[in-house]
């Protein structure tokens, strides 16, 4: 975030920092500046920071254990030491050779990416319209959307199989893109409707008076202001699609066409579990999502700042 936001910020806004932070609200636009100058943290903030860091570490610990187990030599899998006598780095290499992990990773990226795109393309206009217009059937539409979120895809497998059998999309990515898109639409529509509703129409109108077209006003004013919502929707959809398991298991049966979740599952054999590979694959699966998040989080911040400047 830092440089661009700090540069783009008007001098006056920095003053808002102190009261906001002290009152616990802390959305202060001033944080860009403080990152540049490390000494600006108050005692209280440092304490909060320490607590937050402890919690953050707790969040990561189970996955550290996952990684440690993935690095254990076979005969130390069930030893009770916290770390093995030596780390078997070869496990992380072997897991690629022993399975179709590489292909599965590509499928997961493709499916999660396309699903997210589909959700955005479909939900942005729907949410915008729903937020701005009191059209007939609005309530029914929002209810319909909410109801879709309630179904457990596991209970719909028979119907989903029939559907994609008839559409001739079994064993194809498109089935997964459609399913993930449809089942995750609800959250996006709802959260984006909430965000669009919160943005005053006057802002758009003002931009249009300034000579922007309606689309231009949308792009320059509304979308940036709704960016936190869009980012939340993107992350929600991407992660849900990334981790979807049951539907993919039934609809896609060719090993190298399966997403990562299903691919990793095959390390759980009928008679034995190859724990080190199971966990190695799982650690690998977490990385792309965290990268996406790191990348996108930067954008939400700049989106916000852009909004507040306006």
């Amino acid at each position: 975030m830092s440089t661009s936001t700090a540069a783009g910020r008007k001098p006056g806004t920095g003053a808002a920092k102190q009261p906001a932070a002290a009152s616990g609200g802390g959305t202060s636009p001033g944080r860009g500046k403080s990152v540049l100058g490390g000494s600006k943290y108050s005692q209280k903030q440092l304490w909060f920071g320490a607590l937050a860091w402890v919690i953050a570490i707790v969040f990561v610990l189970p996955y550290v254990e996952m990684a440690i187990t993935a690095l254990r030599p076979k005969d130390e899998l069930t030893s009770d030491g916290y770390v093995p006598s030596k780390f078997e780095w070869a496990n992380f290499v072997d897991v690629w050779d022993k399975s179709t992990l590489g292909d599965n990773l590509k499928v997961s990226l493709l499916v999660a990416g396309m699903s997210t795109l589909l959700v955005l393309v479909v939900s942005l206009p729907a949410a915008y319209y729903t937020a701005r217009k009191r059209f007939r059937g609005r309530g029914v539409f929002l209810l319909l959307v909410l109801v879709t979120q309630m179904f457990q895809p596991t209970s719909l497998l028979v119907g989903l199989y029939r559907e994609f059998y008839i559409l001739d999309l079994l064993d194809s990515y498109w089935a997964l893109v459609l399913v993930n898109g449809a089942f995750n639409l609800a959250f996006s529509v709802w959260i984006l409707t909430a965000y669009f509703s919160a943005i005053p129409v006057e802002l758009e109108e003002a931009a249009m008076i300034d000579g922007a077209s309606r689309l231009g006003a949308l792009r320059r004013v509304t979308l940036p202001l709704a960016m936190p919502g869009i980012v939340t929707a993107v992350i929600f959809t991407f992660i849900a699609a990334w981790n979807e398991f049951t539907v993919a298991l039934v609809l896609v049966t060719t090993p190298d066409k399966q997403p990562l979740t299903v691919g990793i599952n095959s390390f759980l054999g009928a008679y034995r579990v190859e724990w080190q590979y199971l966990f190695a694959g799982s650690v690998v699966a977490i990385v792309p999502v965290v990268i996406l998040f790191a990348y996108i989080e930067k954008h939400v911040v700049s989106g916000l700042t852009a909004g507040s400047v306006k």
């Binding site: 975030m1 920092k17 932070a21 616990g24 609200g25 802390g26 959305t27 202060s28 944080r31 403080s34 490390g38 943290y41 903030q45 440092l46 909060f48 920071g49 937050a52 860091w53 919690i55 953050a56 570490i57 969040f59 990561v60 189970p62 996955y63 254990e65 996952m66 187990t69 992350i235 992660i239 990334w242 981790n243 398991f245 979740t261 990793i264 599952n265 199971l278 966990f279 799982s282 699966a285 977490i286 999502v289 965290v290 998040f293 790191a294 989080e297």
Partner: peptide, 28 residues
């Protein structure tokens, strides 16, 4: 939401349980 050193990284750490598949988290 507080302003503290390394907040961005702490937030990344917080997303990890969400990024991991629920099934695998339960397994671990």
């Amino acid at each position: 939401n507080q302003h503290f050193p390394g907040r961005r990284f702490a937030r990344w750490a917080m997303i990890v349980p969400w990024a991991a598949s629920v099934f695998m988290t339960a397994v671990v």
